[in-house]
Design a binder for these strands. Structure first.
Lengths: 332, 332
DNA sequence: ACCGTTGTCGCCAACGTTGTAAAGGATCTG
DNA sequence: CAGATCCTTTACAACGTTGGCGACAACGGT
């Protein structure tokens, strides 16, 4: 059985409150008393019961990070940075995997372990603004959602990023630039923004939009990218460049191009989005849009920290994190 | 402000305990009472305070999963399965990233949020058996550690798996099989087992052990695999096959071989270990040892469930999960 | 009509911690 | 040396929940 403050107090010959004071670093404790208490704590291996402390304090020191899928490299890398940034604030991060489904996401947004977490950093896929009304949990949203005003939001400029990348492809002399990863479902907010950047870049270059070069995919996994490219090639649309809306899509695309006997970038250039580690070691290495994930994570954690520090009712803030283009073998 | 049982009770005109009974699905509540209470709960959007419930019950419904690095695909995939398996038991999973350092791992093993979690599934890197004495937290260890008797343990048969894979490489007619990922540090328990399987297979085939073909690496990331191969090739050791102790190492190796102008598998065959998704889409696709991750996760969660259900002092159990070899392009 | 049983509900205490406020002792000031 | 001020420690209540138990009503069997 575990020991309580009371046990320590008896052993040290002081009151429960004094032990509590020592544990919490209260200043006005005589050195010899403190020493006695600390000795008792060590002997009994006392560790405070956080449930009780949380109940009393109304805070838990835990924030949650909710992402659709942990084994999507982008989210895994993001999670790493969020954990690191949260540690700077003394917080533990509870990571929740929503699967991207609307119901599970609603549960996550409503608070997961209610009263077990002080705040939430949330990367939603299916959730709409309506699902967020009346929520009292301090929350920061990540990603491409365009709903304004409900909660703090950290994002990158998807339209510009996609536009720049498409322009880069065109700049290498390509004319038939395909887009992979379009989504016409309500969840596809990110896809819509990136598609908008793509079409804008085409227009900038005076190239007509050809819908046969735009492939929709149900998700953004490697398999979806491979399937999309097989389909594209089989349809007779001969792209000389492919802009994939995620790196995983692009890696799948590389695979499908390889199977079709096409060389990258000689025959077809390929670009992705996310800058996951895989793309730095693939054959060929992958040109990609590189969002500053470390910055995104820190911005999100800091925004949350602000809310928790009392700016409870401040208006929702929108912060844009920087991105850059990483040029690698697949487009040069 | 959030509502409490008391508020709901007043609104429904019943006692606090009756509301509690409704919330907990207690049978003997009259249907109309139950309906009134449920209506009040809905109107006030009442949600129980889990800290208080945990304090009272002594259980939290949260288990932790501690892994060295979340953005290592193997751990990310494992985490996915653990979350899924835990959900079957009604548990939430708190994922903790230890970084693999001894200190952080000790903290994790000691309980993370003390009293905030009921149990721990732990994949240690640096921790030794001595660090686990006197721990009261129900715990299941994952991975290659060979310490016996401290806690339940789920693993795969690393020696056999490595031996089988090495035998496969030899079976394709290779004679100069390199091993990548050896580690002579105390943390390298997994590496030692896999190296043992490798040498056993060489002996089986009557091939002498050549230490120039064995590359040690500080970690098992892609960059380590690439560096190891560059070094191996530069040293003049001309392998005709490479057995990497992880898939990430192997993907790095593929990259380095490509840069050296060597064809896989024509010039050099490559095999990995873990069966992460990347290896199914790489160019070429990666032959690998495929541990049954879903099974590992479920076994771990079930063992933990057993401990929590009362087998507190049962002797530590060791369970071996199955593995198989996945043959792909990189060795055929 | 009586008694035992079952169903329904409420009161009280407890989980382990910390905030408040106040008591007691030591030290300082004039 | 009295009074004020500080330091150190303590008693008590409260955070929101649930288990144990008892009160009371309704029901069935005799």
């Amino acid at each position: 059985m575990r020991h309580r403050l009371k046990d320590v107090a008896e052993r040290a010959g002081v009151s429960v409150k004094t032990v509590s004071n020592v544990v919490n670093g209260y200043q006005h404790v005589r050195p010899d008393t403190r020493a006695r208490v600390e000795a008792a704590i060590a002997e009994l291996r006392y560790r405070p019961n956080l449930s009780a402390r949380n109940l009393r304090k109304g805070r838990t020191g835990v924030i949650a990070l909710a992402v659709p899928e942990l084994d999507v490299p982008y989210f895994a890398e993001l999670a790493r940075h969020v954990v690191a940034a949260a540690a700077d604030h003394g917080w533990t991060v509870l990571i929740d995997q929503t699967g991207g489904g609307r119901e599970r996401e609603k549960v996550a947004a409503a608070g997961i372990g209610d009263h077990m977490i002080d705040g939430l950093i949330f990367s939603p896929l299916s959730l709409s603004a309506d699902d967020l009304v009346g929520l009292e949990l301090p929350m920061v949203l990540l990603g491409e959602r365009t709903d304004h005003g409900r909660a703090d939001h950290v994002m990158i400029d998807n339209v510009t990023a996609a536009r720049e990348m498409t322009a880069h492809l065109i700049g290498t002399g390509r004319r038939r630039v395909a887009a992979v990863g379009a989504q016409h479902t309500p969840e596809g907010a990110g896809a819509r923004l990136r598609l908008a950047g793509y079409t804008a870049a085409l227009a900038d270059a005076g190239i007509g939009y050809d819908e046969r070069l735009v492939a929709a995919t149900p998700a953004w996994h490697r398999a979806d990218g491979a399937a999309a490219l097989r389909h594209l090639l089989a349809s007779g649309a001969r792209p000389d460049a492919v802009f994939c809306f995620s790196d995983t899509l692009a890696l799948g695309a590389l695979r499908a191009l390889h199977e079709a006997g096409l060389r990258v970038p000689a025959d077809v250039a390929v670009a992705g989005f996310d800058d996951i580690e895989d793309g730095r070691f693939s054959v060929p290495t992958l040109t990609t849009v590189s969002p500053d994930k470390e910055r995104i994570a820190r911005l999100a954690v800091d925004l949350l920290a602000g809310r928790l520090a009392g700016e409870r009712d401040a208006p929702a803030r929108e912060v844009t994190a920087p991105h850059r283009l990483a040029f690698r073998e697949s487009t040069t």
